[in-house]
Amino acid sequence: MAAINRDPRTAPHGTRNDVVLATALAVVAVCMALFTDPARRPDAAGWVLLLACYVPLVWRRRHPLLTLAAVALVVMPYHALGNNPFPPTPASYVALYTVAVTQRPLRTVLTGAAALCVAVTAMLTINTHQAIELLRTSGWIIATLFFGVDVRYYRQYVAGIVERAERAERTREEEARRRVAEERLRIARDLHDLLAHTITLIGVQTSVAAHVLAADPERLDRETIAKALDEIAETCRTARGELRTTLEVLRAAEHGEGRGPLPGLDGLPDLVEAARLAGARVEQSVRVRQAPPAVGAAAYRIVQEALTNAVRHAGREPAVQVELYERDGALRLSVTDDGTGPTPGGTPGFGLVGMRERARSVGGTLDAGPRAEGGFEVSAVLPLTTAVEGTR
């Protein structure tokens, strides 16, 4: 079945196999010539022509039409000498089959018809009886050609199945790579949102403690230092809990389980309180009745990153306004501060990129930049539609 399914022109060791085939058929032809009527046994020239008609079969895969022509040119003088007509028959049929299985059907039919006409015409000039016998057995020639065409179509059918299977496999692999890339991007966003926020708060609280220690070593404000250290410890515990939750979600995803509850709008008060502990003066206004989990999670992460940037870049004790409200079927949020924003020429981070990706993930948009009256503003529009929720 493998030999039938495979295109003979692309089969491995084709020339070697054709040498073996030509040799085996030549041996059969010699046996047919020997065990026949001694009166019709080939003479010296007949033996040479008989063996010579099998030589072109060695190149039948690379040059099928030339092989058929070469076999015909050798077989016709063989028959003209009145030798036994049966020994060269295998070479003729193999050459015809090769043409049929490698060429287009129209070319095969034309080639077969031309070969039959030339053979009959040549035989009529040599031996009328053999010409009539050739016409009588022409059904075998037609059957050989149709068999070759049928094998050709079957190989094309098998090749189509294999190609579709390979295309489907490539599609599955591309889909798997796409999902892996999306999951890696999601993990990167989650870890950035978690670690950047936590590390920023710890840095601010540590700076407060260091400032108190360096301001007046003789009169230490032990209560302020203890409060700053307690806040650092609490922030570390919170970060450890969130990191554990994230890792549990990832392990559950590896086993085909759900991702677990997403952070939503109900977690905004905790973000505001953490920013206040870091020294920011935060005011919030939340006028949203309900939001899909995906939209709520995106809003939570955007507000978290915006507050982190405000604490980090807006200076000491910045005034921050967090506002969320619903209008025209969308959740609209804005986080503004009175600081200077990121330092010009500083190393760019992934905060703004991550916020825009969060907004785009639910079909929304996000703008961020300095305000004309001073400070920095992050604003986003997140659609509150069931269609967007279904895509998550």
Rank of each mutant, 00 (worst) to 15 (best):
T224Y: 01
P64N: 06
G346F: 00
E163W: 06
D367R: 03
G241Y: 04
G46R: 02
L81E: 05
A131C: 04
G351L: 00
V378C: 09
R276L: 07
L195T: 08
A228M: 09
E173K: 11
V58H: 13
K227C: 05
N127C: 12
T121C: 13
A2D: 08
A122I: 02
E323N: 06
R152N: 08
D18H: 14
N84K: 00
R301M: 10
V295T: 06
P90D: 12
F350C: 14
I302T: 05
P42V: 01
F86G: 13
E257A: 14
L247S: 10
R222F: 14
G375H: 03
L57I: 07
G345R: 06
N127D: 15
A159Y: 02
A33Y: 00
H255M: 05
P370I: 07
V320N: 14
G329R: 02
H211C: 10
T347C: 10
C53R: 06
A115P: 05
A387N: 07
T340P: 07
S379V: 08
T111C: 15
R107P: 07
Q321Y: 05
A72N: 12
V58E: 14
T111Q: 07
G339K: 09
G315M: 03
G363R: 07
P85T: 04
R356F: 07
G296S: 11
A114Q: 01
P292M: 03
A298F: 08
A188E: 13
Y54S: 14
I302V: 08
Y93Q: 15
P56C: 01
A72R: 05
E223P: 09
V28Q: 09
Y54W: 11
A314T: 01
T200C: 15
P42T: 00
G296E: 10
G351T: 00
L124Q: 11
A274T: 03
V55E: 12
T144W: 05
C236G: 14
A80F: 06
M123D: 11
T125V: 08
S379C: 03
T386V: 06
F350R: 12
A181N: 10
T365S: 11
V149A: 15
A122M: 04
H313S: 09
V388S: 12
A209H: 08
H63P: 00
L49D: 04
R327A: 13
E182W: 07
A239V: 10
A72Q: 15
E175R: 08
L324K: 04
S285Y: 00
A330G: 03
S361E: 12
T386N: 02
T235H: 05
L324M: 11
A291H: 02
C236I: 06
R287T: 13
F376W: 15
R184V: 10
D221G: 07
F350L: 15
L65R: 06
R6E: 15
R289Y: 02
R178A: 15
R60I: 09
A72C: 13
L271A: 11
E248K: 04
D43L: 05
T238W: 12
A188F: 02
L333A: 01
G369L: 11
G345I: 01
R164N: 13
L65V: 06
T200E: 15
A33T: 03
T67H: 12
